[in-house]
Design a protein around this nucleic acid. Structure first.
Length: 478
RNA sequence: GGGACCGUAGUCUAGCCUGGUAGGAUAGAAGCUUUGGGAGCUUCAGACCCCGGUUCAAAUCCGGGCGGUCUCACCA
């Protein structure tokens, strides 16, 4: 029998055409839509809600870290960029400029990141060691124009992010808190998004433009490419020296502030799609769902009123879960099943006349499609338990995948074979920029990080045979 | 920035080669009817990416732009 064409649902499979499948999930789950200009996207309510959940999780975390939210201007004078040479060089290709002939004397860039404009203020706000540490975050949009190969959430010219920018008296505290931010990111991404990450430090080649050290969280996508999930940077005194960000220290000496910055972006939503969604559509970790469960009544003419009445009661019982009751009578229940699966609602409760007669309902998990018969009296505890179980199971499943993809390469042949078979390959590496560039040209792989979960180890670089002291992870990346 | 392919209702698509009334599916609206995995019938409404060229005539041929997918370079 020929399969009926379903324009509503997904027409591409995750395993057959990952890229197109990804686009369909993002569009058809109504997370996002294309904007009218290349590289710009509309984040629709379903997508923006995920971002708001992320914000709701992370704002209190920052509060505990002593970080306050603020907002800095969108436009940055050209001269600000020129102050930190490497930063300027790193961002030069992707700056979009605002040029108006008469009214302004200097070209203005739309922020690609806010170090310079924030530190210009910091330099004036901090006079004494007593004014430190200074810890500020902003949630904003940034613009990076160099991008040609755009992709919803993963690579757009404009994207939303948070950027924390802190300043300290000592480098030790600066580094410690940069690492703390990374730890908090890891907790959030694993607990809330149910995506496992590997934490580590970036090599010289992958370091943020203007940073002394970059720390990163890397995850691994089902198509065999790594994705950077969040980063934090020890900026050292690179910016404070060029922005005149000095203060009077305890000894009366003039000292330059030690600074870090850290951020994650709406790219996380892209990772969420890639890691968890399936051929039926999005799968939301329960903690990210606007409606963690939906009740679908099975309606027949004679029993409609009784079933609906019971469903209303059910919704009241499940009020604290923000349970949705889909009582639309112009769609069949089958249609609704498909629609809610497409949009990723974690749990579905089916209730029809047969269930009503037995005082039960059917509880279906989105990630496993597993169905359970639940007595109506037990529904509240059952939902609570399933939501918690599902959140854990999703992390466990993706962690298993990450674990399976991580492999060790003892020599160059193993390294090449590992990259070819789309693995996250760990090997001894000299850390040199030139060597990394050659590896990239030969294999398309770049270093992802020097993982924290590996001890230093002496040996020779897998590629150039020069001395190496640390294992480094390599993969093809987004 | 380079290369390849592509652009027809909200979505998918036929027509393009060989110029001459744009057809279908699906989604949408109204009504009837149905509802345990994307039901059915009737009616309505809906499109040739933009600009220019060739031509009596352009969705169709040509040029440019814009946009999309893939890819190399670069990046969250």
């Amino acid at each position: 029998m020929a399969k009926k064409q379903q324009t509503h649902g997904l027409t591409e499979k995750k395993e057959d055409n990952f890229s197109e499948w990804y686009n369909q999930v993002a569009l058809k789950a109504e997370l996002a839509d294309y904007g009218p200009i290349k590289g710009f996207m509309v984040i629709r309510p379903n997508g923006y809600h995920i971002w708001e959940k992320i914000q709701a999780y992370f704002n209190p975390v920052m509060e505990k870290m002593g970080v306050q939210n603020a907002y800095f201007p969108l436009l940055i004078p050209e001269s600000f960029f020129k102050k930190e040479a490497k930063h300027a060089e790193g961002f030069a290709p992707e700056l979009a400029w605002l040029e108006k002939e008469k009214e302004i004397t200097e070209r203005l860039a739309i922020r690609p990141t806010s170090e310079t404009i924030m530190y210009d203020s910091y330099a004036r706000w901090v006079q004494s060691w007593r004014d430190l540490p200074l810890r500020i975050n902003q949630w904003c949009n940034v613009l990076r124009w160099e991008v040609k190969q755009t992709k919803l959430f993963l690579r757009t010219r404009e994207f939303l992010w948070q950027e924390g920018h802190c300043a300290y008296e000592t480098e030790a505290q600066c580094v410690q808190e940069a690492r703390m931010a990374l730890t908090e990111y890891q907790k959030m991404i694993e607990e809330l998004l149910a995506i496992p990450v590997l934490a580590g430090e970036k090599t010289e080649a992958e370091r943020f433009a203007g940073a002394k050290q970059t720390f990163t969280l890397e995850s691994f996508m089902p198509d065999g490419r790594a994705l950077q999930m969040a980063t934090s940077h020890n900026l050292g005194q690179n910016f404070s020296k060029t922005f005149g960000f000095a203060f009077e220290g305890k000894t009366g000496e003039k000292e330059f502030a030690w600074q870090n910055s850290w951020g994650f972006s709406t790219r996380l939503i892209g990772a969420l799609i890639m890691v968890h969604a399936d051929n039926q559509g999005l799968v939301l970790p329960p903690q990210l769902a606007r409606h963690p469960c939906v009740i679908v009544p099975i309606l027949f003419e004679e029993t409609k009123q009784a079933v609906l009445a019971e469903c209303v009661k059910l919704r009241e019982k499940l009020k604290r879960f923000n349970c949705l009751l889909d009582d639309r009578d112009y769609y069949s229940s089958g249609f609704k099943f498909n629609e809610h699966e497409l949009k990723g609602i974690p749990l579905r409760i089916e209730l029809g006349p047969k269930d009503l007669a037995k005082n039960q309902c059917v509880l279906v998990r989105r990630d496993t499609k597993e169905k359970k018969i639940i007595p109506l009296a037990d529904i509240e505890s059952a939902v609570e338990k399933e939501l918690a179980t599902m959140q854990q199971a999703m992390l466990k499943k993706s962690r298993q995948y990450l674990h399976e993809c991580r492999m060790n390469a003892g020599n160059w042949n193993e390294f090449v074979a590992g990259i070819e078979s789309k693995k996250l390959v760990e090997a001894l590496f000299c850390g040199k920029k030139e060597c990394e560039e050659q590896i990239r040209q030969k294999t398309l792989a770049t270093s992802r990080c020097i993982p924290f979960d590996r001890e230093p180890q002496n040996g020779s670089c897998v590629h150039c045979n020069q001395p190496a002291t640390q294992r480094t992870l390599f993969a093809r990346a987004y």
